[in-house]
């Protein structure tokens, strides 16, 4: 486990419980790794990497239509 996954693990554990999943601690660690991978890629669109101007408030998440 890295620092990054350590910090995410409480969130993952709580979210899994909220969603009704029941996994062992070992398994929660594996899902945390997967979640950390998503987070590492998502970071570019999450604060503080992107400021408010770069992603303007477009109201509710827009339904995509070309």
């Amino acid at each position: 486990m890295t620092d990054s996954t350590d910090s995410l693990r409480p969130y993952v554990r709580a979210a899994l419980e909220l969603q009704g999943y029941e996994f062992s601690e070992e398994h929660i660690a594996e899902i945390t790794l997967q979640f950390a991978r998503i987070e590492s890629i998502a970071r570019i669109i999450l604060p503080p990497a992107v400021d408010a101007e770069a992603l303007p408030d477009l109201g509710p998440a827009p339904v995509f239509r070309p």
Binding site: V12, I31, Q34, I38, I45, P56, P62, F64
Partner: peptide, 25 residues
């Protein structure tokens, strides 16, 4: 496990993703 992890993504991330999509478009 990737699917399970995906189901835990916070809504705020998804909304920002939709906005990022609009910016790229």
């Amino acid at each position: 496990d990737r699917l399970v992890a995906g189901s835990l993504i916070p809504a705020t991330w998804v909304i920002r993703a939709q906005r990022a999509r609009k910016v790229a478009y």
